[in-house]
């Protein structure tokens, strides 16, 4: 989390609160799908996010290391399947990210300017 404290008492810009791990588009997509589906299979994630298996594995690795998802490997019959579940921390991180994005949009609409980082 790259939050910046502001000593001058000015409300920090929502951008300063964005979490790099969560804010990345693919990872935000993984978290969103896992949140909505409660439990999601690797193949579904790959098809919905249009990723290669290797690319998706890398992103899942980042999220798993950050404690935002749990990855469970198993078999259904002879077919190997990998299931991804959102952790409580992942759920909270997703909610915080969505909240910041909404705040950012509201701020842009209020000031009438587009912010770029």
């Amino acid at each position: 989390m790259n939050r910046v404290d502001n000593d001058e008492g000015v409300t920090p810009h929502p951008v300063t609160g964005l979490d790099d791990v969560v804010h990345q588009r693919v990872r935000l997509g993984i978290l969103t799908i896992a949140h909505e589906a409660r439990r999601v299979e690797f193949g579904y994630l790959r098809s919905q996010l249009a990723l290669t298996a290797g690319n998706l594995s890398q992103h899942l690795g980042v999220l798993e290391t950050a404690g935002l998802v749990e990855v469970e490997k198993g078999y259904e019959g002879k077919r190997g399947r990998t299931w991804v579940t959102l952790t409580e921390a992942g759920d909270a991180a997703l909610a915080a990210e969505i909240g910041r994005l909404k705040l950012l949009i509201a701020r842009v609409e209020t000031t009438g300017t587009t912010d770029e980082t």
Partner: peptide, 30 residues
């Protein structure tokens, strides 16, 4: 969806739109 990072302030609306679209597709799949 690509693996590029999105400029934090510039494209929040599009990112939120994509998030909502993904959530909707999951709900339909369920």
């Amino acid at each position: 969806m690509t693996s590029d990072a999105v400029p934090a302030g510039g494209d929040a609306r599009r990112l939120l739109g994509e998030v909502r679209g993904l959530a909707r597709r999951v709900r339909i799949a369920q």
